[in-house]
Amino acid sequence: MIYLNAEVVSGLGEDTFWTWFKREFPSSLFENPERFQNNDVVMRYSTLGFLNKVPVKSVALLWELLPEMKIVFNSNEWDGKLNQIYHCAKYCTYRVVASPLAKPYYSQFGTVDIIPIGVNTDLFRPMNAKNELRDKYGIPRNAKVGFWGGTTHPMKGFGRLREWASEHPDIHWVIVWKHEQEASNMPGASNFTLVGQDMLAELMNCADFMLCCGMLKPFYMVEWEAMACNLPVIILDGTQKDFSPSQNPRDDIFRLGWDRSSVKKTWASYLEQRGITW
């Protein structure tokens, strides 16, 4: 049996990795049993720390970017959560990251494997209805439109977005905020909050490109989703990322195995190689 230990299964009812994995691997459960069997495995989100006294195999899902954030911002703000993450990485049987750029932060704890989180390429796709969607959301038909999604947290680069936008006043922006209380109106922008995945995909399809201005190296999930919609990518300052997107970044998603079909095969092989029945 596979036991899924998530911090948040689905905050807004969206189809996350967790809900997708539960659907695709039917033997998995969200709750932990009173007693584990020897062939069980726990897939544990790293911020939860290690589940003590579990005589089974465990996989630490090391998706948080806090180790890099600590270095970039030279801050101790996240040390409490980092201790939990490192505890999970140290004592779990296996360790998994989504990006090779994150691997060095955990190699001290043992072997680190790379498995993409996966993008729903059936939902996040080119829709070929730009004018209709712009009309639907009140976005000018004839404008050049950029997309950005995130929060006001410094790692997301909103300040860099504002600076770049001021240098390109001809661009209209579609900005999607994760948290309503953080939403900041910006001149020349259409701001949206509490957006479901269906609406998010449509808003991405209103844009002509995506601006990647985060302070950390790996692409954020919203950026992978925008690339699945085939939005061309502008990366500020030549920052090293997981890869250099082509003019058709949706093709890159499949080439790199970030589509869910490929990710399922990768996880199935990964589990089978470790004697885990799914």
Rank of each mutant, 00 (worst) to 15 (best):
S244L: 12
P245F: 02
P245T: 01
S246E: 05
S246R: 01
S246P: 06
S246G: 12
S246L: 00
Q247D: 13
Q247A: 11
N248W: 01
N248Y: 06
P249W: 02
P249K: 01
P249C: 03
R250I: 00
R250T: 00
D251W: 01
D251E: 09
D251L: 10
D251F: 01
I253K: 04
I253M: 08
F254C: 04
R255L: 11
R255S: 13
R255W: 04
R255N: 08
L256K: 12
G257L: 06
G257C: 07
G257P: 07
W258S: 03
W258C: 06
W258P: 01
W258H: 15
D259I: 02
D259V: 00
R260S: 06
R260D: 04
R260W: 12
S261F: 11
S261K: 14
S261C: 07
S261D: 09
S262P: 08
S262Q: 11
V263Y: 14
V263N: 08
K264W: 02
K264C: 06
K264A: 03
K265M: 10
K265H: 12
T266C: 15
T266N: 15
T266D: 15
T266Q: 15
T266E: 15
A268G: 04
A268F: 06
Y270F: 15
L271S: 11
E272D: 12
E272R: 15
E272S: 15
Q273G: 15
Q273H: 13
Q273W: 05
Q273D: 14
R274I: 00
R274N: 11
G275C: 09
G275R: 14
